[in-house]
Design a protein around this nucleic acid. Sequence first.
DNA 1: TTGCCGCTGTTATATAATTCACAAAGTTAC
DNA 2: GTAACTTTGTGAATTATATAACAGCGGCAA
Lengths: 210, 210
Amino acid sequence: MMNVISDKVVSRLSQYRRLLSQLNQQEIKHVFSHRMAEEMGVTATQVRRDLMVLGFSGSPTKGYHVEDLRVKITQFLDGHERQLACICGIGNLGRAVMGYFSGRGVSVDVCAAFDVDPAKVGRAIVGRRCYHIDELESVCKELKLSVGIISTPADTAQSVAEKMIQADIKGILNFAPVVLKLPSDIYVQNMDVSLALETVAFFASQKRQS
Amino acid sequence: MMNVISDKVVSRLSQYRRLLSQLNQQEIKHVFSHRMAEEMGVTATQVRRDLMVLGFSGSPTKGYHVEDLRVKITQFLDGHERQLACICGIGNLGRAVMGYFSGRGVSVDVCAAFDVDPAKVGRAIVGRRCYHIDELESVCKELKLSVGIISTPADTAQSVAEKMIQADIKGILNFAPVVLKLPSDIYVQNMDVSLALETVAFFASQKRQS
DNA sequence: TTGCCGCTGTTATATAATTCACAAAGTTAC
DNA sequence: GTAACTTTGTGAATTATATAACAGCGGCAA
Ligand SMILES: NC(=O)c1ccc[n+]([C@@H]2O[C@H](COP(=O)([O-])OP(=O)(O)OC[C@H]3O[C@@H](n4cnc5c(N)ncnc54)[C@H](O)[C@@H]3O)[C@@H](O)[C@H]2O)c1
Ligand SMILES: NC(=O)c1ccc[n+]([C@@H]2O[C@H](COP(=O)([O-])OP(=O)(O)OC[C@H]3O[C@@H](n4cnc5c(N)ncnc54)[C@H](O)[C@@H]3O)[C@@H](O)[C@H]2O)c1
């Protein structure tokens, strides 16, 4: 079994890559861990530690080669093939997400949309055809999608997730405010905006008193 | 200084409250930690440990009183007054968030919107007037807002955050894919959807190989 | 050359978060 | 009444995560 890696490290690697792309555009060839750390709001030690998992070496005098490191991270994160995703629930949020990730050259491409609303099914949403949720399995298997995004109402999220699993999807990004009950071999990340907002509100009101 | 509490605990408390509201609607009066744990996908010990910070006691025979606990959590999280928030950047994502949190009876109310686009400023967005970003300080101070949501493009997020601080905002929920550089007395939570999606994609592709 | 200097890579340590384990206490069975 | 359960509350142990510490190396100044 492959050496286990925490999702925090993966997330930071993804952030490093983003930063490296920016540095690349600014024609910066080399960068020190301190610089990366400062831009990302972490410590230099953390940066070096994270990069250890890649087996990528920098030079003590020049730092890390920006483009080489970017490529190395991309190889590590994306493996070989580009990742494809689908999204279920093309409401207000779903449409925004779809518009953001569809097309533009980011590393994950959201290439299929699903809904149950007859007003949406069959029509094109931000340039992609919207399928009926019943077509999920066939479309996903055909396109070999491995990632699903749930932006349906909370009460349908569980059933949508189960349909995704039927369609061989292995990772889910869930915007619905529910805890999905799924087999442990499915990776789930919740993006619960309400929870996040309430957490921010709590600390904001605490800071207010001081 | 008040005993420090981690954001993870705050977030879970908020989730417990959500669950308790549901149980309340189902007319369930008492609940055991095991039940709550199962619904939330955590351990029973964690539930009890989290509830310790409230100083709320359950009964070994009946468990926790649903409504009393809900009220206790609400007092703890919201303090006394209802929290008010503003949102800057009424694009695709901002409009969705605005529509979701404006009005409906959740604990945080997004009651003011700001943008720079002349096509939006002055008009009503999902029932609320959209102000120009230059009015941020005066409006926020007048309404005593303490929370800000950033959904502007990445390259303007830092300047928007600084304007929020000028307006006495103490907590920020940031959707823009940048690390904000702010004084340490401002609480920031990043909702980086791209990072989350890439993280999910990574683990999905890993599961695929096994 | 020689002796610093600043950076990387990595081990050791510290802190944070979670789980284990169990005493205390109410309930039920009989 | 009391023995057997069940669950809470919480100190202790464990695990996860982040920081500190430092050896090793190459450049550079004198
Ligand atoms: N909009 C926000 O900013 C926001 C904030 C916090 C949480 N959320 C959560 O995100 C989710 C989506 O929010 P939204 O505002 O876009 O909701 P929405 O009501 O605008 O959209 C939901 C969409 O899902 C579709 N749908 C319903 N059942 C379906 C099914 N079984 N299969 C496929 N599609 C189905 C509906 O037809 C609709 O188009 C909700 O769970 C909501 O709680 C949204
Ligand atoms: N839409 C998504 O699903 C998604 C996903 C990941 C990240 N994001 C991030 O969220 C942010 C918003 O995304 P979006 O899709 O809504 O973008 P958008 O371009 O649709 O909207 C941006 C809005 O911000 C306004 N704006 C620009 N400068 C401003 C300023 N200085 N003050 C106030 N308003 C200003 C613009 O007029 C526009 O209305 C971006 O940073 C984006 O990277 C969005």
